[in-house]
């Protein structure tokens, strides 16, 4: 079947199998930053933005994308012109193997578009669908805090302002949660 959509600003007319998953279709068309980590909807390595909202492309049929606008991490910035969030991930040391990174960056983008100054709790919830086995998330949370500051100052990277904010916030949240008897 025919599918019309926009990917990273480019109008696309693709011929697809009706049952095809968006993840596979994107990769076949060269958008290889979209990764398969599980194919089960859990890891978020396949995250893309659909009309600005984060989605797991392994849980979407490509046919659902008719007329939609998709952003992959290639569309966010390039090595020469990286997006402030991409720079923040680099600065924070949040990229180890980098397999989860495109998804993390896009999940961060979706969060900050919706909530420019999220609480630490909001950040952790927004990223709970993006698994990373390398970093222990500490520096990823730092990266989001740095992104917030960078976007506030119009893409400037002041310094690693986000560092340690995350630790503190988690501690407080944990303190509260466990006091309230509200462990998951």
């Amino acid at each position: 079947m025919k599918l019309e959509l926009t990917v990273n600003g480019k109008p696309c007319h693709w011929d697809i199998e009706p049952g095809a998953l968006l993840l596979d279709v994107l990769r076949e068309h060269g958008y290889t930053s979209v990764k398969r980590g599980c194919g089960e909807g859990v890891c978020g390595a396949c995250t893309v933005l659909v009309d600005g909202k984060r989605q797991n492309s392994c849980l979407l049929l490509a046919g659902q994308m008719q007329g939609r606008t998709i952003t992959t991490v290639e569309g966010l910035g390039t090595i020469d012109h990286p997006h402030p969030i991409q720079k923040a991930f680099v600065a924070a040391g949040a990229v180890q193997c980098g397999f989860c990174t495109p998804g993390m960056v896009l999940a961060t983008k979706a969060l900050l578009d919706e909530t420019p100054e999220p609480t630490d709790e909001e950040i952790r919830r927004a990223l709970d669908g993006n698994l990373c086995r390398c970093t222990g998330y500490v520096k990823i949370l730092d990266a989001v805090h740095i992104s917030v500051d960078a976007l506030k100052t119009g893409g400037q990277h002041p310094d690693q302002a986000g560092r340690h904010k995350a630790h503190q916030a988690i501690e407080e949240a944990m303190d509260q949660a466990t006091k309230a008897g509200d462990t998951p």
Binding site: G41, V42, G44, R54, Q55, L59, G129
Partner: peptide, 8 residues
């Protein structure tokens, strides 16, 4: 479920 699922 995870955030990617909740979004959809």
């Amino acid at each position: 479920g995870p955030s990617g699922v909740r979004a959809a």
